[in-house]
Amino acid sequence: MSDCEFGYVQALARDYLCHVLQRPPPRPGPDRVSRLLRAVASAVQRDAERTLRPSLDDLDVASVEAARAVFQAVVRQEFADGVVNWGRLVTVFALQGILAKKLLRARVALDPDLDRDRDLDADTTEEIACFVAEFITSQAGGWIRQNGGWEHGFVQKFEPR
């Protein structure tokens, strides 16, 4: 599978969600791109959660449909100037992680009997990974291909020397 295709990006999104939700790593374990994306996007997510706290508190993410609507509104606006770069693509994964955590918290708040550490169900995480991959491949697939793909362009840019 090409590293610019929907399935590849969906697998990256799925792996990052597993990392954010502290699920056991998939088998086989994450590859080099996934490991690097976990590290970089986690750092960005921590920074964004702190910087964006007032705005994030105003976002209502009580369902996967609401998460999709917020995601699409935010990324469309973020990329509205037509610029794509690896840094902005990393923020898309960080946003995915932020919305997944907000959705999990909203579900726990709605049902206090739920364990606070309860995971999102598999269908929900799959839907999230799907709409993230749809955005990235449709809006940035060409740019990613022209810039070396995930396995060369992204790794070359972010792997520590």
Binding site: V44, L52, L59, R76, Q77, G87, V90, R161
Partner: peptide, 29 residues
């Protein structure tokens, strides 16, 4: 139309992404 909070998030993420991209570019020089 996106709500104010969504616009603010988008602009902040754009800033964070561009800054990250710039810093990595410097590191790779």
């Amino acid at each position: 139309a996106p709500a104010e909070a969504e616009i603010e998030c988008a602009l902040q993420l754009r800033r964070i992404g561009d800054k990250l991209n710039f810093l990595q570019k410097l590191l790779n020089l």
